[in-house]
Design a protein around this nucleic acid. Structure first.
Lengths: 67, 67
DNA sequence: CAAAAAAGTGCATCAGGATGCACTTTTCAA
DNA sequence: TTGAAAAGTGCATCCTGATGCACTTTTTTG
């Protein structure tokens, strides 16, 4: 998982749920500007921001030992 | 996954690998102060910081759809 | 195609994450 | 038990993530 892939995952999931960036921002409590940046793989989001977005998208962050 | 659990996972994995906080900090390029804070579930680490630590511990961050 | 909706940008500001240092507390092996 | 190693703390500084706003670009759709 890297920034770019993370952004793509989030964007893809958001599309699946048919939610707009603006809605995701509002519901998650993260600024629209921030949602856009994350989806584009820019910046370096904080854990809290990531968790807020994942929550709304019905996703979860996991830290697993590599196989 | 929340901050506390994340910290515990990291600490547990570090112990399994018999690595000191100081070593993890040095090898991952993250400040010791930061490693300590994350393991204790304090603060709000950035994605980059988390990825650096996960890398050294042979772990990976994943964003999955909840079942 | 044209209009409307959605997505993305640039920039300034503010809040807080990352860091280093000096220090204290805890852990643990001899 | 005690001394060294490891872990954890408080604080000041620096850097940058998060934000809002006004705006442009891209995508969608009627």
């Amino acid at each position: 998982m890297n920034k770019e892939l993370l952004g793509k995952n989030i964007k893809y999931r958001r599309k699946v749920l048919k939610v707009r960036q603006e809605d995701l921002a509002e519901i998650s409590g993260v600024a629209l500007r921030t949602v856009v940046s994350i989806e584009r793989g820019e910046g370096n989001p904080s854990l809290e921001t990531l968790l807020k977005i994942a929550e709304v998208l019905g996703m979860e962050l996991q830290l697993n030992v590599k196989l």
